[in-house]
């Protein structure tokens, strides 16, 4: 029963990821006084891409063709670990939050290799920049995770969420810092403004898009879907770790419904915030990203220190 529920939750997770992307686009368009495409436009795009014939360069090896499947499956597996509308699911035990960071790294490793597989300058440039950004983002992310894990004394996501639920609404400075840091990291890792621009196609400014420039058709569809799921994973992580209230602790239909509704509200709030920041900010130069990420690291470090200084009782 629990495993079935976990499977259903994962399916719900990956199926609703394009919806989140569509909603985000709608928010941004509204803020920019533009007419937005329909909220289900990402589904249409994905369907179109999946039906199209992929084109692969002559110099591509099996890595190029296998990467979309590997990237999608690691992302789906990550989604299965993250509690979406219910905690206590058995899949959360398979891997903890450190492994989750590892999964993202595995997907990124193959994506960066695929970028270099064709032997063009763009791919290599994208790979190099992506690895740079991620290597700076990872310590900040881990620091945020550490702050949480030291409070809850677990790295299991489900247990950590339960800990926050059980302690009730307490204002912890460490959590505030960790959340801000994690949000900055999430923006960098999902390739949003101001670190990267997912809609740009100006070659010299792109990071993620440069890496997947050679992908088309079915392959591109898989990668796009994977990055939509990744965006949703970061969103769910932020809202469910720091504001887990409403998440189902038992598997009754009623509590699951409450869990789904509360998650919906929380995600709507978060995407409005993200859309707002994307409209207000401009993309920054590649070599200013390090300052941005150092700031994220500093925030998480402050979170850690305030946890140690202010919150530990002996």
């Amino acid at each position: 029963m629990a495993w079935l529920l976990a499977l259903l939750q994962t399916l719900l997770f990956i199926a609703s990821a394009p919806l989140l992307a569509g909603w985000l686009k709608k928010v941004k368009c509204r803020l920019q006084n533009r007419r937005s495409p329909s909220i289900i436009q990402p589904y249409r795009d994905l369907r179109k891409l999946w039906r199209k014939e992929p084109i692969v360069a002559h110099s591509a090896s099996w890595i190029f063709k296998a990467t979309p499947y590997i990237v999608l499956s690691t992302t789906v597996l990550t989604a299965s670990i993250v509690p979406l509308i219910a905690v206590n699911l058995p899949t959360a035990k398979i891997a903890d939050v450190v492994v989750l960071i590892g999964f993202f790294a595995l997907g990124r490793f193959f994506l960066a290799l695929a970028g270099m597989d064709i032997g063009t300058a763009f791919g290599g440039m994208g790979s190099s920049r992506e690895m740079t950004v991620s290597s700076l983002a990872e310590p900040a992310m881990l620091m945020a995770v550490f702050t949480l894990a030291m409070s809850a004394s677990t790295t299991n996501l489900s247990e950590a969420m339960k800990y926050v639920l059980n302690t009730g609404l307490v204002l912890r400075p460490s959590f505030v810092f960790a959340m801000l840091g994690l949000m900055l990291v999430a923006v960098a890792e999902t390739g949003r403004i101001p670190v990267d621009n997912p809609t740009t196609h100006l070659e010299l400014t792109m990071i993620h898009e440069a890496m997947i420039l050679e992908y088309s058709g079915r392959h591109l569809g898989l990668i796009e879907w994977a990055s939509q799921i990744k965006l949703m994973i970061y969103g769910v992580l932020i809202v469910n770790i720091f504001f887990p209230w409403g998440i189902a602790q038992s598997f009754s239909l009623e509590s699951l419904g409450i869990g789904a509704m509360s998650l919906l509200l929380k995600l709507i709030g978060l995407t409005v915030l993200l859309g707002l920041s994307e409209v207000v900010l401009a993309k920054m130069r590649v070599f200013r990203v390090q300052e941005y990420l150092s700031f994220a690291y500093l925030l998480t470090l402050l979170g850690m220190l305030s946890h140690i200084i202010l919150e530990v009782q002996h």
């Binding site: 110099s59 090896s61 890595i63 960071i101 790294a105 990124r108 490793f109 960066a112 290799l113 970028g115 270099m116 597989d117 064709i118 032997g119 290599g124 790979s127 190099s128 690895m131 740079t132 991620s134 290597s135 700076l136 983002a137 990872e138 310590p139 900040a140 992310m141 881990l142 620091m143 550490f146 030291m150 690291y297 470090l301 850690m304």
Partner: peptide, 28 residues
């Protein structure tokens, strides 16, 4: 924790380093 953040940096850099190795030597 600071040391382990450095460890995280190290393992992320190692991934970058070996993407470089494999990408340059074996791919392209």
């Amino acid at each position: 924790p600071t040391a382990s953040a450095v460890l995280a940096l190290t393992s992320a850099l190692a991934a970058g380093c070996f993407v470089n190795v494999y990408g340059v030597a074996f791919l392209g």
